[in-house]
């Protein structure tokens, strides 16, 4: 046995404070975390925000089934009943006559009823409109953009927008005559 250190031991210098592979792992994990954080931020940002009463209603551009288009700005100065429906939705059938009646009774008083067909086909939506003899304007929500802007959770859902363009109320589920009586006065334009 020799007291002298071996050749290999004498050649090797002091060990580095951080090994190269550890550094690579740390960099890779950091990159991954940054990418995941960006992804999470984007996903969270895409979540629908809950609308608050009194706040401006989200603007929209609706392609009408009968042709043409309508925006919320076009209805400035009128109260708006914005109803999300679908031809495959049974409760929507129940509330359709109520909406038509509200439109016929209040259109001259400055209240517009507007239907938004959600996740529906044009032909099916048209059949629904004809079946219930709906005369108020209806459009299809391509890409579910309006549905996402209003954060709807299903159909039917109805939003009441006052003449200033602010949200006066929202009703989830099939509309009732009582709900109509409750919300219509809130969106009535001043005489």
């Amino acid at each position: 046995m020799s007291d002298h250190p071996s050749t290999t031991e004498s050649v090797a210098g002091p060990p580095p404070l951080v090994s190269r592979s550890l550094l690579l792992v740390v960099v890779a994990i950091s990159v991954m975390l940054v990418l995941l954080a960006l992804l999470a931020w984007r996903v969270l940002r895409a979540q629908p925000v809950a609308l608050a009463v009194g706040e401006p209603a989200p603007p929209f551009h609706l392609q009408l089934i009968e042709g043409g288009s309508l925006t919320l700005a076009d209805l400035q100065g009128q109260g708006v009943v914005l109803n999300f429906w679908a031809s495959w939705c049974d409760p929507c059938r129940d509330e359709a006559p109520l909406l038509e009646e509200a439109w016929l009774r209040n259109r001259d008083a400055g209240i517009a009823v507007l239907g938004v067909a959600h996740l529906d086909q044009k032909a099916a939506a048209l059949r629904f409109i004809q079946t219930f003899r709906i005369t108020y304007p209806n459009g299809r929500d391509s890409g579910s953009l309006i549905a996402r802007a209003y954060g709807i959770q299903g159909v039917p859902e109805t939003f009441f927008i006052d003449p200033a363009g602010n949200l006066a109320g929202a009703w989830r589920g099939p509309l009732t005559a009582e709900a109509m009586q409750q919300f219509l006065p809130l969106i009535q334009p001043a005489p």
Binding site: A86, S87, W88, L119, D120, Q121, A124
Partner: peptide
């Protein structure tokens, strides 16, 4: 099985 999806398949 939803009616919405039945209609989409038909489309």
């Amino acid at each position: 099985e939803l009616q919405a999806c039945v209609q989409m398949r038909a489309e």
